[in-house]
């Protein structure tokens, strides 16, 4: 991260493809994409992690398939095909989560299905996977997916800590802690996101 080359200055190494999603082009903190799940299911660290990993999985699989089919899909129907591919993997993920835990599925609720319209995934398919090799697309998807998960975890940890006094369900504060109810309500998502954007922006401006 110390000497990120500007996108076009040097040859982009595969490490850069991976790293960019984690920090420099973080989908949540820099690109501000996919806000719906970011705000809605980051109320606890566990939900945030599950949502992040589910999205990362869909992103990885759809990137692979889109990249594989990039010479086969005519450009007029490309968006429709991407959505079809993404929706397939979302449905697969939906079943998988149900089979892992009914409770987790209840907590994530409609937001699993809404991964279909997460603009992060479509944007990676359109902007990257459809123009790059499979191996590069995998790296890109892993970086972006983990970056998304990392950002969700950042929000989820803060919201659960303040809103419930715990982290991954384990009590952090002593008995009698006054929880900040607002933090687990939707409004708390906006507050926390704003605070993180402030912090990340300050850090990135300092580095630049």
């Amino acid at each position: 991260m110390t000497n990120n080359p500007p996108p076009s200055a040097k040859k982009i190494t595969s490490t850069d493809e991976f790293i960019k999603g984690l920090w420099r082009d973080n989908p949540v903190f820099v690109q501000v994409l996919g806000m719906c799940p970011v705000l809605a299911v980051s109320n606890t660290a566990e939900n945030a992690l599950a949502m992040g990993l589910a999205t990362a999985f869909v992103l990885l699989m759809s990137n692979i398939l889109v990249s594989l089919l990039r010479n086969f899909v005519p450009k007029q129907v490309r968006i429709a095909s991407y959505i079809l591919i993404i929706a397939t993997f979302v449905t697969v993920t939906d079943y998988a989560i149900q089979a892992i835990s009914v409770e987790l599925h209840k907590a994530l609720g409609a937001f699993i299905s809404l991964i279909v319209v997460n603009c992060l995934i479509l944007s990676r398919a359109e902007a990257f996977a459809s123009k790059n090799t499979v191996s590069k697309s995998v790296l890109d998807a892993l970086g972006m997916g983990l970056g998304f998960t990392f950002a969700l975890l950042c929000l989820g940890a803060v919201r659960e800590l303040l809103g419930n006094g715990s982290l991954f369900g384990l009590a952090v504060f002593p008995e009698g802690f006054q929880s900040w109810i607002v933090m687990i309500l939707p409004a708390g998502g906006f507050f926390t996101l704003a605070a993180w954007l402030l912090v990340i922006n300050a850090l990135q401006t300092k580095k630049a």
């Binding site: 006054q178 900040w180 109810i181 607002v182 933090m183 309500l185 409004a187």
Partner: peptide, 10 residues
């Protein structure tokens, strides 16, 4: 409003 949402009981 923030206090009401954060600490509704108090």
């Amino acid at each position: 409003a923030v206090l009401q949402a954060a600490f509704p009981v108090a």
